[in-house]
Write a protein that binds this DNA or RNA. Structure first.
Length: 505
RNA sequence: GCCCCCAUCGUCUAGUCUGGUCUAGGACACGGGCCUUUCAAGCCCGCGACAAGGGUUCGAAUCCCUUUGGGGGCACCA
């Protein structure tokens, strides 16, 4: 039997990183076992439905490298109004893969559950249900449907009048969830609610839809967040009522924020789109996510490429406890991946960030490209996220206003000595030919000797004068990229600052 | 209120199933140092945990119980 797993996001917004991690586990398991990874769109909540997010979800999964073997086909995607549907269409033998296209199946199963005595019609009004809940809350009773319609005569509610269909949960006995990760979890049936299966708008609730789809799509392993555990016994009842085989359940732990609380916007990025926009590499995020709640046994390796992860992945080793998301560790890992990139590859990754910041034209002119290719090696070891390229290189693109006088005075130096150093540096740099990092270094080092300074004193002053910053990429390469003309002009401007300072006193 | 899940350094984790090799290993973070033109990167050193209490056992991070602490769920949401 081949393994079939699925990811079933609902198109209500961005995909949360916790769900993405669950998708990673599903994908790794499918690839490891040589099975199929299926994408299903769960759009049964018509009030929160936002069709445009289907594309966002698909783009995110693709960017992370989570390709699906079966999923919505072109016709379905067109039906929900997606442009370029063909580009995202995958299809498969068990469609449709968007739940709103499967309504008839859910309705039929719900009716059959009634026939089999496992479900009943209910026409209680929302007001009545709210009143029941309020009363229960006041009396500190268990909050669940009072089963008002459960024992009505079979024909009391006509199929034609508005109503819902509820699951007829046994009043006694127990239901056991056999879970690969948590072990056997036992529930008393008496504590389970008569869950609504089919809503009055004809759409199924999640509980019905997921069971019907998983069954007909031949899903073998349900790998999902452990927040679903409490609703699992109700699903098992539907399987049993229909005489279907129950899939293997694997409830993986949730992902919390660094403070242990639910991961939310205030912690930082939470959606895959945000991580992408902040300049995390998909390989790094994938590596990091795979190791959140799971680790291969034995070794002390932290960096794994995709193939190694597939090779090592073991669903049975997934932790029981929830994990806190550490942005700092992700940043470190992202830096590792950035440093591994070739100059050309890193440049291609960086270009959109320069362009988005308005520093480079789109498309990038060939001569600008040559210049920026030279910048890449200077900053590669300094980047943890691609977006940081802006702060590291901004002075290359914009006019640098001369820094205040105190910044131009070297450590343990007088303003006069600093001014003299600046003047000599400008003279030296005016002569250097060609104006390259290799050619610039020796004369500047000689100047350090000549002036009797420490390297850091002279270079620090020049750095401030030419970049307007205390911290910048390595000086010689930076000057070469700034170019002789601008370098000399910035040095001259800095000299003027010091001259005016001494005049003023 | 009721139900469920979980518990090793600040964080991610190895070790737990198959008690002894664990004076508990690695990584991130943090502190110090080396290198060094700043910042990084790299290298070295350090800090730092079996939640608590009871058992079982010659021996427990590992098995059992209780407590505490965290998390999750109780919709015509998923």
């Amino acid at each position: 039997m081949t393994v079939r797993v699925r990811m079933a996001p609902s198109p209500t917004g961005e995909m949360h990183i916790g769900n993405v991690r669950t998708a990673v586990f599903n994908w790794l398991f499918a690839r490891k076992m040589g099975g199929q990874f299926i994408l299903r769109i769960e759009d049964t909540d018509r009030t929160r439905y936002r069709p445009e997010t289907i594309r966002v979800i698909m783009d995110g999964l693709r960017w992370l490298g989570l390709d699906w073997d079966e999923g919505p086909g072109a016709e379905e995607l067109e039906r929900v109004g997606m442009a370029n549907a063909a580009e995202y269409a995958v299809g498969g033998p068990y469609g449709p893969y968007i739940q709103s296209g499967r309504l008839e199946m859910y309705r039929q199963v719900a009716e059959e559950l009634i026939e089999r005595g496992w479900a009943y019609r209910c026409n209680c009004s929302p007001e009545r249900l709210a009143a029941v809940r309020a009363r229960q809350r006041a009396n500190k009773e268990m909050i669940m449907y009072d089963r008002h319609c459960r024992n009505l005569p079979p024909d009391a509610i006509s199929p034609d009048e508005p109503h819902v269909i509820r699951l007829k949960v046994p009043l006694s006995g127990r239901t056991v969830v056999h879970d690969v990760i948590k072990g056997d979890v036992v529930f008393d049936n008496s504590g389970l609610d008569d869950q609504v299966l089919l809503k009055s708008d004809g759409f199924p609730t999640y509980h019905l839809a997921v069971v019907v789809d998983d069954h007909f799509m031949k899903i073998t392993h349900v790998i999902r967040g452990d927040d679903w555990i409490p609703s699992t016994p109700k699903r098992i009842m539907i399987y049993q009522a229909m005489g279907w085989e129950v899939p293997v359940y694997c409830h993986v732990p949730l992902v919390n924020g660094p403070d242990g609380r639910k991961l939310s916007k205030r912690h930082g990025a939470t959606s895959i789109t945000e991580f992408r926009e902040q300049g995390y590499l998909p390989e790094a995020l994938f590596n990091f996510l795979a190791l959140l709640g799971w680790a291969p046994g034995g070794g002390e390796q932290e960096i794994f490429d995709r193939e190694e992860l597939i090779e090592e992945f073991d669903l049975f080793r997934v932790n029981k406890a929830s994990a806190s998301f550490s942005y700092k560790k992700l940043d470190w890992m992202n830096g590792v991946y950035i440093r591994r990139l070739s100059t050309d590859d890193l440049f291609e990754q960086l270009l959109p960030f320069w362009q988005r910041a308005g520093l480079v034209a789109d498309p990038c002119p060939p001569e600008e490209r040559e210049r920026l290719l030279a910048v890449v090696p200077l900053i590669r070891e300094r980047l943890r996220k691609l977006s940081e390229v802006v702060q590291w290189t901004e002075f290359l693109f914009r006019e640098v206003s001369p820094p205040p006088a105190e910044k131009l005075v070297g450590k343990k130096m007088t303003p006069e000595a600093s001014l003299a150093a600046l003047r000599r540096a400008r003279e030296v740099l005016a002569e250097v030919t060609p104006f390259t990092a290799e050619a610039i270094e020796p004369p500047l080092r000689a100047l350090v000797e000549e002036l009797g300074l420490k390297p850091g004193q002279l270079f620090g002053i020049i750095r401030w004068a030419t970049t307007g910053q205390k911290v910048a990429p390595p000086l010689f390469g930076t000057l070469a990229i700034i170019g002789r003309e601008k370098t000399l002009a910035r040095l001259a401007a800095a000299e003027r600052v010091l001259e005016e300072e001494s005049d003023g006193e």
